[in-house]
């Protein structure tokens, strides 16, 4: 329900703005599939800045760990990344399951160090959208179903003014992985 409060278009505009502000470039330069690192020259510190701006804007907590780090944590070391720091077949399978055919492509044997360059505005929009979607139907403080979004504000309860309780970004990813496993998604270690 919260998804309809803040549309993907609105999220995209905020992501675009956060990137442009952090990198001191014009918003026109930021396109949905620009690689933050390759096309927009972002460095690791810039990711912190961009995430922090989005966290403030939406009152969310962006993930602290990369998706494949979560895979390793949940399914065991070596599942997604082999000993030489390269992506396994299992990593590719689970990556494609999560990001779909429209997402940035990975392949087995790709160095993990190349993965951050795959982050695009589109992936950030997806992450923010997923977190916002964890907003419960009713406000846990007052029980009302009256979420509202004033212009440029995070989701707040129209009844009591409380901020929407949203899942942290890392928890959203973990939950997705658990669902994936429950659905019978196979994640076996590369042999």
């Amino acid at each position: 329900m919260a998804e309809s409060l803040i549309s993907p278009d609105q999220i995209y505009r905020e992501v675009q703005k956060a990137i442009a502000d952090a990198l001191q470039i014009s918003e026109q330069k930021v396109e949905p599939d620009s690689s933050l690192i390759r096309d927009l020259a972002a460095e690791s510190l810039d990711f912190i800045d961009i995430n922090f701006r989005l966290e403030q804007r939406f009152n969310v907590e962006m993930p602290r760990k990369y998706f494949l780090e979560h895979v390793e944590e949940l399914f065991g070391e070596g599942t997604a990344i082999d000993e030489s720091g390269r992506l396994t077949e299992a990593a590719v399978t689970i990556w494609n399951a999560r990001l779909g055919s429209a997402g940035p492509r990975v392949h087995a044997g790709m160095p993990l160090d190349d993965v951050p360059a795959l982050v695009t505005p589109r992936t950030l929009v997806m992450i923010v959208g997923e977190i916002l979607a964890t907003c419960p139907a009713t406000c846990p403080s007052c029980g009302k179903a009256a979420w509202a979004v004033a212009d440029g504000s995070p989701i707040t309860c129209g009844g009591c003014g409380a901020h929407a309780p949203l899942l942290a970004g890392d928890d959203v990813i973990r939950r997705w992985l658990e669902d994936f496993r429950a659905r019978g998604g196979s994640v076996s270690r590369a042999s």
Binding site: F52, Q56, N59, E61
Partner: peptide
Amino acid sequence: ATRLRQGGYDAF
């Protein structure tokens, strides 16, 4: 820590 994310200041 979540309150540190409120208030419109920057990460640095």
